[in-house]
Simulated assay, not measured.
Amino acid sequence: MRSVRRIVTGHDGSGRPVIVEDADCRHIQTTAGAQVVNLWLHEGPPRNDTTYADPVGPDVPLPPPAGGGVLRVVEFGPRDQGETPYLHRTPSLDYAFVIAGEVVAVVGSEETVMRAGDVLIQRGTTHAWDNRSDTPCTILFVLLDTGPAT
């Protein structure tokens, strides 16, 4: 997966707007056969504090923190023959924007092919991402906690 540059704004000691970080994001994980770059997360409502501390730590779980959200880029490689897509469900509202490539969104017993520029609003259903092509697929995700399913 290519690196993802993360630029974060903030304020200096005098309250002037500044760029507090500008570097390739180092929060990279491999999970369920995909490469994940966790760009940002927040527990509870998002905040724009005047001090800056990187909110992303090691081993970010799949769902967002309670009452919070996570921003990540995921690259799904082509699925190996015999491999089963990772079916999962999280208590979150997920926005999935395909940046590059093609992937099959599996939702219950239904499927739809997504290509670059397509967006899926994932509302707490059991789902999987199945790359049946021969090239990687890159998706930008925003996951917002919704609490327990009702």
Rank of each mutant, 00 (worst) to 15 (best):
G67W: 06
A105K: 12
V74K: 14
H11R: 15
G147W: 08
A96W: 01
P136I: 02
R47E: 08
A105Q: 05
D118K: 00
V107R: 06
D59F: 10
G124Q: 10
R72T: 01
R123L: 06
I28E: 15
V113K: 03
G15I: 11
P46I: 02
G10P: 13
G108H: 05
R2G: 03
A105W: 10
V73F: 03
L62T: 13
I121S: 02
G101W: 14
Y52T: 08
Q35N: 10
L39P: 12
R79C: 06
W40H: 07
R132E: 08
V18K: 08
R26M: 07
T135S: 08
W129G: 13
V56C: 09
D24L: 01
T90S: 03
G101A: 07
A116W: 14
T30K: 15
G10T: 09
P55E: 10
D118F: 01
R132L: 06
G108R: 02
V56E: 06
S109Y: 07
C137Y: 01
V37L: 03
E21L: 15
G15S: 04
S133E: 09
V73K: 02
R89D: 03
R6H: 05
I19W: 11
P17R: 15
V103A: 12
R2Y: 06
V119T: 15
D59H: 14
A53S: 09
L41W: 04
C25D: 15
I19M: 15
T51V: 13
L120D: 09
R2Q: 12
T125F: 07
E110R: 11
P85R: 00
T30P: 07
P85E: 00
N131L: 03
T112M: 05
D94K: 06
T150V: 04
A149P: 14
I99A: 06
D24I: 01
H127E: 01
E102K: 14
G147C: 08
A105P: 00
G33S: 07
R2L: 02
V107S: 07
Y95T: 04
D80T: 10
H127A: 00
T9L: 05
P58L: 04
R6S: 02
V4R: 09
Q35L: 00
F141K: 05
E43R: 15
D22Y: 11
R79F: 00
E111K: 12
E21Q: 14
V4E: 04
S3D: 13
